[in-house]
Design a protein around this nucleic acid. Sequence first.
DNA 1: CGCAGGCTTGAGACCTCTCAAAAACGGTGG
DNA 2: CCACCGTTTTTGAGAGGTCTCAAGCCTGCG
Lengths: 250, 250
Amino acid sequence: MTRQTPIPSQSACPSSLRIGAMDFDGSDIALLNFRNSLQSVPANRTLLHDGADSGKIIIVADGWLATSKSSLSGEVQLIDLLLPGDIADPTSADGKTAGLNIEAVTDAKVCAIPLPVWHKMLAASPRLARANELVQAAERSRLSERMLRLGRGSAESRIAYALIELSLRLKPLGLSENGAFHLPLTQQRIGDFTGLTAVHVCRTLRRFVRNGLVETADHMDVRINDLTTLAKVAGVEPDRLAAEITPVPD
Amino acid sequence: MTRQTPIPSQSACPSSLRIGAMDFDGSDIALLNFRNSLQSVPANRTLLHDGADSGKIIIVADGWLATSKSSLSGEVQLIDLLLPGDIADPTSADGKTAGLNIEAVTDAKVCAIPLPVWHKMLAASPRLARANELVQAAERSRLSERMLRLGRGSAESRIAYALIELSLRLKPLGLSENGAFHLPLTQQRIGDFTGLTAVHVCRTLRRFVRNGLVETADHMDVRINDLTTLAKVAGVEPDRLAAEITPVPD
DNA sequence: CGCAGGCTTGAGACCTCTCAAAAACGGTGG
DNA sequence: CCACCGTTTTTGAGAGGTCTCAAGCCTGCG
């Protein structure tokens, strides 16, 4: 398998911001000069701690973020992986405290918008409100799918599902072709995502490779070789899943 | 432990509808004659199937609902339990298909509102929009907490957490006093909620009872006797959890 | 060249599941 | 009131999957 060619970062100063499958520029988002609120975040930096005062939503412009929770004993569960176009709203029911951690998985560019501003923006732009709605619906759907597998699935099923989910989500971003994509996660983090230990992630991935379901290269490049079988292991119909977790364009 | 006195159902024809911790009457919800849209649902009736065309949100007026997903092999995972004041939005990223099942756990009264109407209502009433926001935030928070335990917690931790979560959520509804509440779930369903088999739920609950953490009576009444220890098992700080998963009044 | 972090592999322990059977419960009809 | 039935709960025994602990290797980097 050949090394995937690195995808050039969108641009130093993007002229529009993608939310879900829709693009927005200054005219759509009258209230926000999002160019000014774009900030770079280095990999592994925590943007927000569980329990801290929140007050902002975060839109991913580039790179990967993760939301997570930790148990008192220090074990980590990744709640969701956020890709470009996704929105993180960490607010919990008290309206101000964050209910989870948000961290950058890779170097990332994000746009942090105070909640009052965000609400004004949504009220001012029905198209933005619609995009937001679809992004939230996509997140709810993938969380449900993952909960099903956390609660009822085997290690194989959890990992197979994660690979398929990410492959499907990366495709409309141009970051996955023919099932091949860059997966910027250590096996430890894959374990945090799937509720498994790093050791068992390793064993399970290697079994996939041995059985020809998947190829890996270069430490973090993945290619799904046998989607049919992998989908069976994951307990998923790829087309239907794509419709449920991938926001549609306007 | 004494049998809990049955709480009288709110009223045959309520004069207001509770959403989160806020009450709304006809003047608040100008666009909806919600009295007319109130419908009764018998226990165990499915309101919506995963994959069906959705198009409505559902507000719980009385009783318990559950959202769930099933694997191809027929195993069920309850994604969330919905209590009076909660809102179910089953829509997935395609904007029309339901991403999960919604079923009545007990006899229930619900209010089903078509999405376009709902959006108009939210736009017309900032207070309703705020209530909706807090209800959604509460749901996100409790889903995160549960994912953490599905992925990283033991059976004891999952069940302890579920009991505490439900006790906390029922309290502001007047349905839980001193940690005692009615839990209208079979052990099979508790297992579907916590990702365990009914057999293991039984063993774990009995261990809690033996150790004095919990009392049970009458097949489905529960009393948390030792919240401190149970919270330690759950890996939770009850006060903080309450703030994160319980919507606050206006 | 040496070091730190990540990956791989093995062996054994532990937790939860599966299968199975019996007891308890709740509702129904006589 | 009692007998009967299906469902739910309880308990046991054994299998299986995932975790823990541990060691060795590989890679990238200072």
